[in-house]
């Protein structure tokens, strides 16, 4: 019986018996937290080198990790997705090379001391990344890393299996349930592009910048735009007075 088999058998039985709801109701994030001995976990869906949103998360901090990378376009999950390799930051305060100049201080402010990201893929097909984070520093054991990789594999196959049931051209309802694809940000970008007479792409940049300068989540800023609570000034020299 191979080591991988033991591991998969363990992971599958944990998925079958654990509480929680992740992709298609499968408690992937809860099991990831458990097997890695971490504080929380999330799974991000990526394509075209960008985050498309979060499929599932265990808590608000895990949600913050995804949202921040979505807004900034940098962070461990994006690196894991792009490189196809595990990204292991066991001590965010002393990374050996400068990593994620904007993401890292924000993560530390949230009490995240260590973060680990694993590519979610099937062979060469890249789907996203699994993140686990810890509120104390410290490396994952070899065993914990191997469990996380097997779990990423199960997550990847679960995602494509669920999409196989979706009607052509539509998103699998089971994938969408519990996911956050930041649709409100795109609604806000449409509104802002009309208000300011700028392109939707430029509007997205303005929303991201606003979230960063106001230290708010991008979804919150977008929700205020949609509700006409937050109005932007078209004069860039006098940016964004409410």
């Amino acid at each position: 019986m191979s080591d991988n088999t033991n591991r998969l058998t363990k992971i599958l039985s944990l998925l079958a018996t654990s509480q929680g709801s992740g992709i298609g109701g499968t408690p992937v994030c809860e099991v990831a937290t458990h097997v890695t001995g971490c504080t929380g976990a999330s799974i991000m869906l990526l394509s075209d080198d960008h985050s498309k949103g979060s499929l599932c998360r265990t808590d608000d901090v895990a949600a913050f990790i995804e949202e921040t990378q979505y807004a900034l376009g940098e962070g461990p999950s994006i690196d894991a997705y792009l490189s196809g390799r595990s990204v292991l930051a066991q001590n965010l305060r002393s990374l050996s090379v400068p990593h994620w100049p904007v993401f890292t201080p924000l993560a530390l402010d949230k009490g995240i001391e260590a973060i680990f990201s694993f590519p979610v893929r099937i062979g060469a097909v890249r789907l996203g990344a699994l993140n686990v984070y810890r509120s104390e520093t410290g490396a994952l054991s070899t065993d914990q890393r191997s469990d996380a990789l097997v779990l990423s594999d199960v997550a990847a196959r679960t995602i494509v299996s669920l999409q196989a049931y979706a009607a052509p051209g539509t998103l699998s309802q089971e994938i969408e349930n519990g996911a956050n694809f930041h649709f409100v940000v795109h609604q806000a970008a449409g509104i802002l592009s009309e208000q300011l007479g700028i392109s939707v792409q430029d509007a997205l940049v303005r929303i991201r910048a606003r979230a960063f300068t106001d230290d708010r989540s991008i979804d919150d800023v977008a929700t205020d735009i949609v509700n006409h609570v937050l109005l932007f000034d078209n004069d860039l020299s006098n940016e964004d007075k409410d």
Partner: peptide, 23 residues
């Protein structure tokens, strides 16, 4: 994976257009 991304991109474009028309 391709279908998933296309479906998601199409949803994103629809949300953007909804925002423009709403405004």
């Amino acid at each position: 994976n391709d279908q998933l991304n296309q479906a998601l991109n199409s949803r994103i474009i629809i949300e953007q257009a909804k925002g423009k028309i709403a405004e």
